[in-house]
Write a protein that binds this DNA or RNA. Structure first.
Lengths: 222, 222
DNA sequence: CCTGACTGAATGATCGTTCAGTCAGTCAGG
DNA sequence: CCTGACTGACTGAACGATCATTCAGTCAGG
């Protein structure tokens, strides 16, 4: 975790390295349990057992059960922040970057499908100020997509669209893969889904020059 | 409620009319409480108090607390089924119908924003077979949108797009207004949001003839 | 020995669910 | 009409289970 947002969660334990390690251990167990059973159906004792520690130990690293949820959700959002930049590394062309970002986002959502759902299901169980932290982290990770769109506009490939609007639509496009997986996966493979989405948003954004560029980059397409 | 899906929820009470009335009373209270506090944070006693009945009475009309949740979610989905056809009544032109359907969907989501969130937050708290009922109801209400898209294709206004795919994107576009309201409402009015969404999806679908028709129907647009 | 991480049984609060009992209405028999 | 038996909707206090949280005590290493 290389969180930009460090939540102020107090721990009884002073050794910072140990705190990191133990919390990760707890969060790994929690994400798995919360994702599959839900937050309220999971007991702290279960988390402890799965993490291989005692119940009491958990309360040396967090204040209460909600803290475990907060850390879990931040951990999930953080995995977007890790994976997307990695997928963009070395890709120069703005249109290809745009595609790579969307594909990476969808891939992470696919790999951590239940975890992604958890953020929707349980974020509102948090107190208002803890929820603010989640929102800030989300906006932060959206920036990765927004930058790709802006680069396309600056290169003259996209019309001067509303970047925030398109960003949110793209983010939700990826999340939809998790939210409606029960239906979508009946009809599309992940790759088909990404491809169709990419095309859809291109139609809304590409300039004339953008279309020419597109046909150059993807000669197979119509 | 004119549910197409009648869930098999047993009631101790035999008088069918009374069952309808009491259940509605319970569901109205439950939707309000579940929406604002969440399912697990709401006690059956609270639902009873808000509905103006005793705790015991509730258990004469449902089997357990989950039944209340199931009825609540079905009630919410049902409100889409009521409102969208009403908004389409009398509108003939396929493109206008399409727009009216999207606007109506978004309007219902806006009016019942917390209730819409409830369906995302809590659907997974239901047992698998109760969840199937929700999914069926959702597919049913999606049909209203799909029909509008098909009409546009048949009229030659839309390319022969993947109807299911676009339908899901439109449905999610509406739901996104609830899911990301904390951010979107900072930037757009509901009308702006609908308008921008409508344009976006038109770009992905319209034929040449469709564009001519569009400019005819909306002369103000660029 | 201390210190501080760690344990896990015990505590206390919170709820879903039940059930013994109330009460209004119905109806048969006188 | 009255009356008393009966029905079934309705009540809400009590029960029992479930958990979040605590804390008295253990143990390892310095």
């Amino acid at each position: 975790m290389a969180n930009t947002i460090i939540p102020e969660i107090k721990s009884q334990v002073t050794d910072e390295v140990l705190v990191q390690r133990r919390r990760q251990q707890i969060v790994d167990a929690a994400v798995e349990l919360f994702s599959s059973q839900g937050y309220y159906r999971t007991t702290v004792q279960e988390v402890a057992r799965k993490a291989g520690v005692s119940t009491g130990l958990i309360y040396q690293y967090v204040q209460d059960k909600e803290d475990i949820l907060l850390l879990s959700i931040l951990d999930i959002i953080d995995s977007y922040q890790q994976e997307i930049p990695a997928a963009l590394a070395g890709v120069e062309d703005p249109l290809l970057r745009m595609r790579a970002a969307l594909a990476a986002y969808c891939r992470v959502v696919d790999q951590r499908r239940l975890a992604t759902l958890l953020t929707y299901r349980s974020a509102r169980s948090l107190s208002s100020d803890r929820r603010q932290l989640i929102k800030a982290a989300e906006l932060d990770s959206n920036r990765l997509i927004a930058d790709c769109i802006r680069a396309c506009i600056d290169a003259g490939l996209f019309e001067p669209v509303d970047v925030d609007f398109i960003t949110y639509q793209l983010v939700m496009f990826a999340h939809t893969w998790a939210l409606k997986h029960w239906r979508l996966a009946e009809q599309y493979s992940l790759n088909d889904y990404v491809e169709k989405g990419f095309r859809l948003y291109l139609h809304a954004c590409l300039t004339e020059a953008g279309w020419r560029h597109f046909r150059l980059m993807f000669p197979s397409a119509a």
